[in-house]
Every structure is written in structure tokens, then in C-alpha cells.
Write a protein that binds this DNA or RNA. Sequence first.
DNA 1: GCCAACGTTGGC
DNA 2: GCCAACGTTGGC
Length: 152
Amino acid sequence: MNYWLMKSEPDAFSINDLYNKPDQTEHWDGVRNYQARNMMRDDMKPGDQVFFYHSNCDVPGIAGIMEVVREGYPDFSAFDPDDRHFDPKSDPANPRWMMVDVKYVKTLSRIISLKELKSYPELADLALVKRGNRLSIMPVSKSQWDFILALE
DNA sequence: GCCAACGTTGGC
DNA sequence: GCCAACGTTGGC
């Protein structure tokens, strides 16, 4: 099993929004970055555990946990001219962008803030805390995962 | 294949 | 709202 962290702006889609979805499941559409796409296409499998990270908000940090329930498949929002993430270069016959489905697992009892995550030497290698990192999906090691969970 | 221009991300 | 970081685009 693998572990991940996925970012979302809570104004657009938060852990509460996921909680309120039918079956508490949603497709993670709109990712338009090749590195992140490759991880969803090649590496994320049902059963993988994922931190839900709230970005670009008052207190950026880890807000909850979700689980991958469907492996990578074409991101159909790329085919919709009315969608914010429409990409005319993504051909339905040869889709450029992929997504996975995720299911709500739990909301943490508190937000574990970016500021706090940066303060632990144990997490120095976590891509999230590296300067300038903008990846919206990143791998988390088992030891990092366990360490962060123990902070709650 | 280089690289300047441009757009986006996301913390602060 | 600012701006550093950085990915993408497109002219050459």
C-alpha cells in the first residue's frame, strides 16, 4: 500500500465537501500537471491512503484522510469547453489527463498546519515542506505517514 | 534545443 | 494583494 498527499483549495473543494458527497466519494478532476498526472495514472491504487491538504487558505495544512477507491482513468472535465479545466489538446480518443476516485475516511480532530509540519526534522524530506514546492499530489513515505498521524 | 515571456500556484 | 517559484509555450 502507498501513501499520498493531495492538495485542494477548501473554497473550491474541502474535506467537508467530500464528506457530503454521495457515497462520500468524488473524482479528483482538474489536475493539469504531468508529474501529478503520472502518479495518478501509474502509481495510485485502490486502498492507498491519502492526506487531504487544504491549500491557499487561512491555515494551510492537513485536514483529513481519504482513500483511493478507483485507479486512474480519463479526466473527462478536460473535454468540456464549459469546464474551468477544459483542455482542447486532450483528445477523448487519447486523453491527456487522468484522475482517480477518492473516498472520505476521516476528518482530523485538528488541522495539522504547514507551519507545524515544517517544524519537525522528521519531515524534512517531505516534498510539501520543501521551498517552492507546488506539486498538488505527492508521495508520503510510511514513516512520514505514521509520524504525522501521531501528531493528531 | 534554447530561452524569454507568460501563466499559475500558493504561502505570507 | 504581493511575489517567488516554477511549469509551459512558442519563436527562433
